[in-house]
Write a protein that binds this DNA or RNA. Structure first.
Lengths: 137, 137
DNA sequence: ATCATTGCAAACACTTTGCATACGC
DNA sequence: GCGTATGCAAAGTGTTTGCAATGAT
């Protein structure tokens, strides 16, 4: 059984209560949350938690490749623990982000036109299933 | 010959000096500028230009499909006039954005898992050619 | 005269920074 | 005890909003 503590240690990050809880939240709530969403959710059980700690932790986790940063037009960074290849669909009406299980030619770790690729993202923008339904009414 | 005035009219936007200048800047400076970059560049020749107008105009142009919004990790929106299919490479060191001429299966205007796709973007993140060179030294 | 566009200032939202306190080996 | 992690407050940055002034037909 893999614990969050072990995930952090394997990534070379000193485990702490805050770090474990943040990682756990991202593992159990696969909704591409922002720093603020994570902060508000965890604040309930950890009243002393600071937003700075959330930002610090997320930055550390991204630097150690435990999390992926998503840039999804909202002028806020969203975070994701899922490392399987998939694409993102962002609804321009409800702002929700859906994972779409489609494969694509990934350039990660390749050299393209001389540039070293470290991350590859595919983002679709549009109107989601549910918002399309609402429009019909 | 296609004028910026005509591009705006065809898109259903009332042409104005400000709007024409902003569109012209984006056509002639294909560097994926932010609102602030555009503002600072145009301010020189148009001292009365307001940042609000830049934001208003960019929003209008995006809504009418004249421009594309890019979300490139910087917590600022970048804008692009080029509508040809290509992918973006963002350097994490110098922050520059490169256009890469690679084709991909585009889902634009298709329905995917019930969602209507209006825009499709591919973003690579990594270290660019020039920053790789600098590292070697 | 009317309606849309422009522009200023203030408000907002997300993130970062500086620094003091607390924690863990 | 020492080095790192945490947390508060303030500052920084990009964007939006309210509203008055301006401009075009």
């Amino acid at each position: 059984m893999i614990t969050y503590k072990k995930v952090l240690q394997d990534a070379g990050i000193t485990p702490s209560m805050q770090r474990i809880k943040i990682l756990e939240y991202l593992d159990k709530n696969r909704v591409h949350p922002s720093a603020d969403t994570i902060y508000k959710a965890l604040k309930k059980d950890m009243p002393t938690l600071s937003k700075t700690t959330v930002y610090n932790t997320l930055k550390t986790l991204v630097e150690h490749n435990v999390l992926t940063e998503l840039s999804l037009y909202d002028n806020e960074i969203r975070y994701e623990y899922n490392q399987d290849q998939h694409i993102h669909f962002k609804c321009i009406e409800c702002r929700k982000v859906y994972d779409i299980d489609k494969k694509y030619k990934c350039y990660k770790n390749e050299i393209i036109e001389g540039h070293k690729v470290l991350d590859h993202q595919v983002i679709l923008k549009g109107v989601c299933k549910h918002c399309l339904e609402k429009r019909k009414k």
